Amino acid sequence: MLVYYAIANAGAWTLTPGEGRPVRLIPAAGLTGCLVLAFALPLSSVITGVAVLGVGAAAYGLRRAITARSSESR
């Protein structure tokens, strides 16, 4: 969850005022909070979370490769 919220806060930082960007302090505080909480976690939790993210990224990449290969053969 912390990774998701960190990405969301980093994305909010890149918005323009026309896109409804909040005051820059808000996404900065959110991203800082995510980082502080991540460093406060036990090492075993961090390792498990990184492993889960890695498995998810590998599954996503494999699915994209299979989809691209099946699109090329048509």
Rank of each mutant, 00 (worst) to 15 (best):
Leu31Phe: 01
Phe39Asp: 05
Asn9Ile: 01
Leu37Lys: 08
Val23Met: 08
Leu62Pro: 03
Ala59Ser: 09
Leu41Thr: 02
Gly33Asn: 12
Ala38Asn: 02
Trp13Cys: 05
Ile47Val: 14
Trp13Tyr: 15
Arg64Met: 05
Arg21Met: 10
Val46Lys: 04
Ala65Ile: 11
Pro27Met: 00
Val50Gln: 10
Ala29Gln: 14
Pro27Ser: 01
Leu62Gly: 13
Leu35Met: 14
Ser73Ile: 01
Val3Gln: 12
Thr16Phe: 05
Thr48Asn: 14
Pro22Asp: 13
Val3Arg: 15
Val50Cys: 11
Arg24Cys: 00
Val55Cys: 08
Leu53Arg: 04
Thr16Ile: 06
Arg74Val: 11
Leu41Val: 06
Glu72Met: 06
Asn9Ser: 12
Arg74Gly: 12
Arg74Gln: 06
Val36Arg: 03
Pro22Cys: 09
Ala57Cys: 04
Pro42Tyr: 04
Arg69Tyr: 05
Val46His: 00
Leu37Thr: 13
Phe39Gln: 05
Pro42Thr: 02
Gly20Tyr: 11
Leu15Lys: 05
Pro27Tyr: 00
Ala29Gly: 07
Ser44Val: 13
Ile66Leu: 13
Gly11Gln: 07
Leu41Ile: 02
Ser45Trp: 12
Pro17Val: 01
Val23Trp: 10
Gly11Lys: 06
Ser70Ile: 01
Thr67Leu: 12
Ile66Gly: 03
Gly20Glu: 11
Gly30Cys: 09
Leu43Val: 15
Thr48Pro: 00
Arg24Val: 10
Val52Asn: 15
Arg24Pro: 04
Cys34Asn: 08
Gly49Thr: 02
Ala29Glu: 15
Tyr60Val: 05
Leu43Phe: 13
Glu72Trp: 05
Arg74Pro: 05
Val55Ser: 12
Leu53Tyr: 02
Ile47Arg: 14
Gly30Val: 13
Leu31Lys: 05
Tyr5Gly: 02
Thr67Ile: 02
Thr48Asp: 15
Gly56Met: 07
Leu37Ala: 14
Ala58Glu: 11
Thr67Met: 03
Leu37Tyr: 06
Thr48Ala: 14
Thr16Ser: 10
Val46Cys: 00
Gly30Asp: 10
Ile66Val: 11
